[in-house]
Design a protein around this nucleic acid. Sequence first.
DNA 1: CTGGGTGCAAATCCTTTGCACATTG
DNA 2: CAATGTGCAAAGGATTTGCACCCAG
Lengths: 130, 130
Amino acid sequence: MSAPVKYSSQREAILRFLKSRKDHPTADVVFHHIRKDIPNISLATVYRNLNQLAAAGIILRLTTDGKTDHFDACVEPHYHFCCRGCNGVMDIDMEPFPELTKKAEEVSNYKIEQATILFSGLCDCCKDKL
Amino acid sequence: MSAPVKYSSQREAILRFLKSRKDHPTADVVFHHIRKDIPNISLATVYRNLNQLAAAGIILRLTTDGKTDHFDACVEPHYHFCCRGCNGVMDIDMEPFPELTKKAEEVSNYKIEQATILFSGLCDCCKDKL
DNA sequence: CTGGGTGCAAATCCTTTGCACATTG
DNA sequence: CAATGTGCAAAGGATTTGCACCCAG
């Protein structure tokens, strides 16, 4: 049923760029960087591909407190941190707590498929400045 | 420094409405309900007051995977669940895990001020339908 | 009477979509 | 050649803002 995926150089470039970064760029950041290699790529194409990759589970869409989503080429379950100073999104290297989801499911009786943990505060750089 | 807050019947009505609900309405839902009592209130006023109340720590803004934020009159730390079927946001009645934040802070060296835990999946109603 | 609050409409920001053309398989 | 992907521009939805007027302190 799902439409067969056809190769496109734009999508490859987007994915490659995402994999090369350990921060988690927004669509706009992806767009501006890809543009250096593919000058006439359009923002719409970036959005379309990010959506497609996320839907396919190849990348992760991160919804933070800011208004724009961030994207992560690492789909292993892990936690994130969003700095209220610079609005950057970073990884937190700690093992997931599967008990959390299990306990929530017991307590609530909902079918819980996912737990999103987002820490926020100030990163190393912003800790001093603010 | 912060501007003195003046009373307004609109803000009072918005806060009262929010307190009367255990789901977590969006700005638009608040608007349509308040409108029954204050027919000529504007959506801009609703947004302005929700923002002001959230900034003052009187209510909580909940950013979910959906595109519109939800608001919660209960500011005690607690967890939420967002149903991908009906997009509703519900409370999860379980004790918070303070260790989570502590551990993340140790591991990362960031100044962590907040941990947002959002579960998602299917609620009781949507579990059967989908 | 001074400054915050409101309603309205217009503006913004982020994201999606329609359409004609290009590219892949 | 059939169908997906692209670029462009226009549309869309959620939220904010400018401005003249209103009202609390």
